[in-house]
Amino acid sequence: MRLGLMSFAHLHAESYIAALLAMPDVELIGVVDDNQQRGEHFANLFKVRLFEDYTALLREKPDGVIITSENARHLPLVEMAAAAGVAILCEKPLATTREDAQKIVEICQQAHVPLMTAFPMRFSSPAIEVKKLLASGKAGAIWGCNSTNQGALPIFHQQENLAFLNRNWFTDKHLAGGGAVVDHVVHLADLLRWFLGCEVTEVFAETNTILHAGQVEVETGGLVMLTFENGTFASIDCSWSKPAYYPTWGGLKMELVSENGLITMDAYKQIVTIYSHKTQRPQWGYWGSDANYGLLRDFISAIREKRPPAITGQDGYKAVEIVMAAYESAQTGQPVKL
């Protein structure tokens, strides 16, 4: 299994590489980045080959590529990879517009290349338990879900000597597609679609720009209400509301209320609290399982078994559709039907 990685714009690139390097049946043939200094930095760090450009990587005929560019730059990389007939694992969100997301799906369909959207939470061990519990029917009908996927402001490496990593595009409306909503709604929206086994029919959103005002222009606070075909409603708090000195980056939690009671999930609860003289503040060390591992294994198996991946491009498209409806609702002040 020969894989390559396209772009280090997204910081998940390092997590994927670290996981791939630990897999004996995978050969990471190389990486590419359009930021030369950044590419060299990570190629040296992980001791992997750095290709001079995307075409050079694709000429080597990898079995699959992982695309971890800025959200708005997924489409051109997908086009290249699909034209080369290479399977694609694309970082979420698939795109910054419905049209681009649709194109990405269509291009891969026409080229007959597998397309997987990187929603690793479907491989989170606590989330898998919830899925099983729901499938067992013990919870009965799900009435609603109160959920959060909050984080710190995604501005990185400001104090460190790593400005060249140039990863502050998460707060750039053009490159990211928006702010907290596009960053943090997709994981929960996708998990809920998976858990409930049906589609979103209506989206409502309230957003604001109070947190980190003056630092960024995009929305930093957001509450999104999804309503599903079966009547279940779910609120998602996607705010960048965790301070930079919070014990961890943020988190993902769900409370599912059903006719039979309550199921709670805190996906990053498996932690130890570390108090260190070095940091002078508590820090949470996560010891739970790595969801990225499961995501990558499914991508690899899908290529080997010539089957569609567990999470498809269509799943990625649906999440983009929900995000765009949320922005429309925040504009109009009323729910948007899908």
Partner: peptide, 20 residues
């Protein structure tokens, strides 16, 4: 689940239930 928008721009998510 109820969402409030406050005059000063703050937003609130309020959960209530007779469900447990």
């Amino acid at each position: 689940l109820v969402m409030l928008r406050h005059k000063n721009g703050a937003i609130s998510n309020i959960e209530g239930g007779w469900a447990y």
